[in-house]
Amino acid sequence: MAAESAVLTMDSSRPEPRRRPQIVASSVLGMIMFTFTEAMLFAGMISAHAIVRARSAGQMWPPFGQPRLPIEQTAFNTTALLVSGIALVFAHFAYRKRPRQALGPLAIAALLGLFFVVFQGVEWVALLEQGLTLQSSAYGGFFYLIVGAHALHAVAAILCLTWAWFRLRRGALTPAQLGTVEVFWYFVVLVWPLIYLKVYLS
C-alpha cells in the first residue's frame, strides 16, 4: 500500500475533470452516512437490551448476585466526554480563524477522550472483580457488549483525532479532513449519554 500510494502521488497524464461545486465535501458526507449505520447499530443493541430488561419485569434488576453499575463515577466520566466534544467545537471555530490555533483544543479533545476510555477500563476491572462478566448473565453480557462497542468506536475516533492533530501541526490538514474526523467524534460523544441513560440508569 505504501509503495502504491507513493506511485499515486506522481504526476498524472489525465487532468482533473471539471466538477460540480459540492455543498458538503464528499468525505464529510460519507462519514455522515456511516454514522447513520452506526447509530442503527447502537439502536439495535440498546433496544435488544431494553427488550431483555422488559422481559425480566418483576424480577430483580440487576439479577441476584450481580453488582450494580457505578452510576456516580460514570456520570463524572460522561461529563469528561461531553467536555471533550465541546473542545472539538472550539477547535472547529479556531481552525476557521487560524488553523494552527486549533492545535490546543484538538489536543484537549483527544486527551479527554483518552481519559474517558482509560477511566472506563478501570471501571471494567472493578466490575470484573465483583463478578460481572460477559457470561455471568444477560445483564453482564449486554453491559460489556454495548459499552465495549462504544469503547472500540472511541479508540478509533481518538486515533483519528491524533492523526488530525499531527497533520494540523504539519499544516496539511484540510477542512474536509477535519470535518470528517469531527463528525465521527461528535457521534461517539453524543451516543454516549444515550447509553448512560439506557444501560446505567434503567
Binding site: 502521488t9 468525505s27 479532513q177
Partner: peptide
C-alpha cells in the same frame, strides 16, 4: 475548494493507475 486536494488525489490515483 477546501476538499479539492482530496478529490484531486483520487483523480491522480486512477489516472496514474494505467501507467504506473
Amino acid at each position: 475548494m477546501a476538499h479539492a486536494s482530496a478529490t484531486e488525489a483520487h483523480a491522480h490515483e486512477h489516472a496514474t493507475q494505467e501507467h504506473h
